[in-house]
């Protein structure tokens, strides 16, 4: 079947088997490998992407179900050469170690901040409670999201001078 959607602002159309999971569509068909997968039971949340701005587990959405919708992956977080404050915050506050859960965590954080620009610790913890991290113990992720909240206009132009 043919599906069309917007991925990171770009309109794409592809021919797929109906059973293709959105995570496989993103990774294997579009070759956007920043979205990961880590379980079979919709528990781990490493596959989180934004669908029309809301975080969803892309292992539990068919690519066919995303037809006509807008998907944002980690590759779409930075605009131009400018990192999203969330990306900057994760670097500033050591919100990642192995980097595997990081894309999903950052996308959830982005969606949270879009709705609630000044979340408290509890709200951040609740927002990421459907996603597992084995490395960080979560506290630095919470700090990273807070950093992003406190620096809404943080910018990094790739490889150049930084303003923090």
């Amino acid at each position: 079947m043919q599906i069309s959607m917007t991925v990171n602002g770009e309109d794409i159309t592809r021919e797929i088997e109906p059973r293709v999971l959105l995570v496989h569509f993103i990774r294997d068909v579009l070759r956007l490998t920043g979205t990961h997968w880590g379980c079979d039971t919709s528990n781990c949340g490493t596959c989180v992407v934004l669908m029309d701005g809301l975080p969803v587990k892309s292992c539990t959405v068919l690519a066919a179900m995303a037809d006509g919708h807008a998907i944002t992956t980690v590759e779409g977080l930075a605009t131009g050469g400018t990192l999203d404050p969330v990306q900057q915050g994760f670097m500033e506050e050591h919100g990642l170690q192995c980097g595997f859960c990081t894309p999903g965590m950052m996308l959830t954080a982005r969606a949270l901040l879009d709705r609630n620009p000044h979340p408290d610790d509890g709200e951040i913890r609740e927002a990421i409670s459907g996603q597992m991290c084995r490395c960080t113990g979560y506290a630095t992720i919470v700090r990273s999201v807070k950093w992003a909240a406190e620096h809404p206009a943080a910018q990094e132009t790739t490889g150049e001078e930084v303003t923090a």
């Binding site: 949340g45 809301l54 969803v56 587990k57 959830t108 409670s129 459907g130």
Partner: peptide, 9 residues
């Protein structure tokens, strides 16, 4: 019920 991301769907 489940988690906030599952609740979105």
């Amino acid at each position: 019920i489940a988690d906030p991301i599952v609740r979105n769907r």
